[in-house]
Computed example of a mutant assay.
Amino acid sequence: MTETISRESTATTGDRDGSGTTAERTHRAVPASRDHGRQWRTVRGRRKIPRWVRRLTGPFLLYLTWQLVTSFGIVSSRSLASPGAVLAAGREMWGSGELLDALGSSLYRVGWGLLFGVAIGLSLAVVAGFFRLGEDVVDSSMNFLRTIPVIALLPLIIVWIGIGEEAKIFLIVIGVVFPIYMNTFAAIRGVDAKLVEAGMIFGLGRPGLIRRVIIPGSVPGFLVGLRWALGVAWLLLVFAEQVNTDRGIGYLLNHAQAWNRTDIIVLCLAIYGLLGLLSDGIVRFLERSLLSWRRGFAGT
Rank of each mutant, 00 (worst) to 15 (best):
A89T: 15
T70W: 06
A152D: 00
G175R: 01
A128R: 08
L133P: 10
R206A: 08
M93I: 04
V173L: 03
M142G: 00
I157W: 04
N183E: 06
I172V: 15
I120M: 06
G129F: 15
K168P: 07
I169W: 07
I120K: 01
E165P: 02
V118D: 11
F116N: 06
S76I: 04
G90A: 15
V177I: 08
W94E: 05
L107Q: 13
S79E: 07
S77F: 10
S105E: 14
A152K: 03
L145D: 06
V150H: 03
D101E: 15
A125N: 11
G90L: 06
F170D: 06
S82N: 11
F178M: 01
V176N: 01
F178G: 05
G175E: 01
S96E: 13
V191Q: 13
S96D: 14
S79W: 08
L99N: 09
L154G: 02
R91Q: 05
V110S: 13
S82P: 03
A125V: 07
I74R: 12
A152Q: 07
L100S: 12
W160L: 01
L204K: 04
G97I: 14
F170E: 02
L171R: 02
T147P: 01
T147K: 03
L133Q: 12
L103Y: 11
K194M: 09
L195M: 14
L114F: 02
E165V: 07
